[in-house]
Nucleic acid binder design. Structure first.
Lengths: 259, 259
DNA sequence: TTGCTTGTATTATTATTTAATACTTTTTAT
DNA sequence: ATAAAAAGTATTAAATAATAATACAAGCAA
């Protein structure tokens, strides 16, 4: 309340809503089911508050509650929200049919991603090959610096933005091969800029090569990427450059975000 | 406040949160971008309230605001919530790899759906053929009575539940061929129960045949469906019954929701 | 330009949220 | 099997934080 008082005599900010949202956002890949006290800890609320908000979220249908364990889970309403997003995003609408075609042509997993803070979020996923569940989940987040999509996005930022990102955005080691050296990443980004598309090898999943081409908005900024993930067992880097990258670039360029 | 007072001296219910959620839920396929007053109308709040909640949602990153038009759109956070749901749902986790296989075998669009109220919501979509955008959107909702998935779900409900659903759940005419006669739907549901899978022809998209097989939870209730959508130009009903339905049933049966 | 609609800012009022606490049930450890 | 601890639920008095009315500013249409 010390903290809140200092920055929020803003009567246009409804703290209760924000706290409720924090509860919703507490759920993720690692926290799929949470009890009351657990939730309170994670979100940083006292038990009473957690009680009120979970109760409200439950009554409004946003959280399921297992009557046995009394633990909470996200409900299908979370999926409805995603649908609302997808309908609202012109990039998604335009990219979708082209990605389906591309996926059939290549026979490989094709995705579309957008930047959110220091992460990229997959907004379209068209799986064709079995891999980890994470690689199939719509809405999944990956640190930008370790992804092909993030790297080509960085390459198209202003010098300052890019510098800042390279210096400050998080780099957790996901696989043993994740590059954590920032100057090394800077080089990868530079290379991406030169060739026009980003590449990431073994960064998030071992034996996986990611390739990402940028789609620009009317301002000339990168709206998102068209991305493809392939197995390095099956594809050499050479073949990726020669056969996949050009197709991705072609598709990316064909997506025209006029308005 | 008359209404609120009568039912909610419940101090465990946070009205502000609920109103904020209503704002979020105002966005859908038809309402992709909303101004302040528009939002206020849709959600049933006065302008002041709409102002406070949109402001909060914007500051917390859940709504984007176009600086030009000052209209609001859902943000990528909506997608993150979806990811949280997907990770939390064992049905999704188990179904995903099997659906990918199935999709490759059949070369047709394969989905998984769950029931939410009187609608089914698609939780997995694996598009392989171009169709309407609606048929590709994860989280999209379809009235249960007009979908193959909904029909097989109904078939496995208790007599009372089914009766109630058949009598009260909404049936909007989506295509000219949408069946709006409830006794006709009752027959379709009955047939679904007998053959073990649901069928819907031209119900949501013309020239589309939907086929859905049920996946049961440990309680013997339908947890969700494995569904396939094909073009009636390409597939006869006979072939659907002989070639697709058995494969769907097989896959559905192989998904074992023990815990 | 004028009038009309939509969005923004400010404020006093009070209804609503808060957090403390006691109670109940479930789980864990002895 | 029993006791102790932890987790969830219910109740309440206090006051903070949300409310809604209103005035102001900025866009848009006629």
């Amino acid at each position: 309340m010390a903290k809140r008082a200092q920055e929020k005599q803003d009567t246009l900010f409804v703290g209760s809503l924000e706290k409720g949202l924090r509860i919703m956002a507490a759920f993720n890949a690692h926290r799929t089911e949470l009890g009351l006290t657990e939730l309170a800890e994670v979100v940083g609320l006292d038990k009473s508050a957690a009680q009120r908000f979970t109760n409200t979220l439950h009554k409004t249908g946003y959280l399921e509650k297992d009557p046995e364990s009394r633990r909470f889970r996200p409900s299908l309403k979370f999926m409805e929200l995603a649908a609302a997003y997808l309908w609202s995003d012109p990039f998604v609408q335009l990219a979708m049919p082209k990605l389906i075609d591309l996926s059939r042509d290549l026979g490989e997993r094709v995705n579309a991603a957008r930047l959110a803070g220091s992460d990229i979020i997959y907004v379209i996923r068209i799986p064709t090959q079995l891999t980890s569940f994470a690689a199939m989940v719509v809405g999944n987040k990956v640190q930008a610096l370790s992804s092909s999509s993030g790297r080509i996005m960085l390459a198209h930022m202003s010098e300052e933005e890019r510098q800042l990102a390279l210096e400050t955005w998080p780099i957790d080691r996901i696989t043993p091969r994740t590059v954590t050296d920032r100057s090394q990443i800077a080089r990868e980004v530079e290379e991406a800029g030169q060739q026009g598309y980003g590449i990431a090898v073994n960064q998030n999943i071992i034996n996986e090569i990611g390739i990402a081409a940028p789609v620009f908005d009317r301002m000339g900024r990168v709206a998102g990427t068209v991305q493809c993930s392939v197995s390095s067992q099956k594809w050499s880097l050479d073949r990726v450059h020669n056969e996949i990258a050009p197709r991705l670039m072609e598709v990316a360029n064909s997506i025209n975000l006029l308005r």
